[in-house]
Simulated assay, not measured.
Amino acid sequence: MITLYDHPRSGNCYRVRLFLSLIGLASRRVFVDVLARANHTEAFERVSAFRQVPAIQDGDDEPIWDSHAILLYLAHRYAPQWIAPSDQMGQMHAWISVSTNEIANSLQPLRLTKVVSTEEAAHHLGVDASLLDVAGLERKTHRTLAAFNKRLTEHEWLAVSRSVADVDCYGYLALAEEAGIDVANYPAIAAWRHRIEALPGYVRHGDTASSAPHDGFLNNP
């Protein structure tokens, strides 16, 4: 069984939990208390090179960290139907790259400033609290969402066919309201979110009903 090192509020962890549920793959979840800095240990560094969640351990294989890498690994090994056809492969990887760059530098940190304290957000973003530019993050977020909305106005799925890129980008686009974004202003994104939410196996952020029980607080992973 796959072990998932997880934090329930993380959008990065959510995209992995969601994909595991969509492909019907059982997992054992280990809660890593990142707010208590439980990930800042040499032991956890052996699981995740940059001490970040999520990470997975698939049997006796070497651990895999980074949510984007985890999704691609799971798709290639267990759910090839989520890999785009060869003529759409470039688009799939391009939109995964958008998740790792544009979303990770706009919507993702903007949401963080709303759900934790300013000091905690600054710590995780690696900046001084006085340097947090929330207004700038809001502008970047709206530019990113406008690009998504245009793409999804023209196509049902990001890579034309449904692929792992949709789950990757959905992880934080599903949480846009927590960043203070009204998704009604982006109707194509809203419709795309509904399509994902209608898929068999879909679980909402924070819904643990279809997951294996937690192993509790991980202070010494």
Rank of each mutant, 00 (worst) to 15 (best):
V203G: 03
S211G: 09
G206D: 02
G206A: 01
R204E: 15
D215C: 15
H205M: 08
E177Y: 06
I181E: 00
D166Q: 13
S211L: 00
I181R: 02
H194R: 08
G206P: 04
D215T: 11
Y170L: 14
V164P: 00
H214F: 14
C169D: 13
Y172W: 07
A184T: 12
G206L: 01
V183F: 10
Y186H: 09
G216H: 03
W192L: 06
A190E: 08
A184C: 02
E197Q: 05
G201K: 02
A209D: 14
P187D: 03
V167Y: 00
Y170E: 00
D182M: 06
C169G: 07
H214Q: 15
A165T: 11
Y170D: 00
A198K: 02
V183G: 02
P213F: 02
E178M: 12
D207Q: 01
Y202I: 04
C169E: 10
Y170H: 10
A176N: 12
G171L: 05
E197Y: 11
D207Y: 01
H205C: 13
T208C: 04
A176F: 01
G171C: 14
E197V: 08
R195E: 09
S211R: 04
D168K: 07
R193Y: 08
L173W: 02
F217C: 04
D182H: 06
G206E: 03
A188M: 09
D182S: 02
A176G: 07
A184V: 10
R195Y: 11
A188D: 03
